[in-house]
């Protein structure tokens, strides 16, 4: 199952019609200790590349953008009391929301893992 990435460092993985979304390992490292995640309400309709959540670390506050359009069907409530899971496991247990995507063709607007690695390399 391919993981796709945005230029704003979100990741998304689609499986059986549901897209799991989080922030990349690179983003989590840049933020440092995550102290707060503002989660959207389930049912919220999100648009690709529009802000739908926020994340704060000791050092900074950042917006989180939707990698795909769709409807939020679940949020990772564990993050409300233990946001540090985003640092410990950003691309797995530290997932942020599950979205029911409305248009899987939007995946074409995203980077594959290999492309994202290349993108990060170019940023240095």
């Amino acid at each position: 199952m391919e993981t796709y990435f945005t230029k704003e460092h979100e990741w998304v993985r689609v499986s059986e019609g549901v897209a799991v979304v989080g922030i990349s390992d690179h983003a989590a490292q840049l933020l440092g200790d995550v102290t707060f995640v503002e989660l959207p309400s389930p049912g919220k309709v999100v648009t690709q590349f529009r802000q739908f959540a926020a994340i704060e670390s000791v050092k900074a506050a950042s917006d989180i953008y939707a990698p795909l359009s769709g409807k939020v069907v679940a949020v990772n409530e564990t993050l409300e009391s233990a946001p540090e899971i985003v640092n410990e496991s950003p691309e797995d247990a530290g997932w942020i929301v599950r979205i029911e995507p409305s248009d899987l063709d939007e995946l074409r607007n995203l980077m594959t893992g290999a492309q994202y690695e290349e993108f990060l390399g170019g940023m240095e």
């Binding site: 707060f36 506050a61 946001p83």
Partner: peptide
Amino acid sequence: AFKVASRRSPR
């Protein structure tokens, strides 16, 4: 001095 009602950071 103030305490915030959540984990949000004032800055």
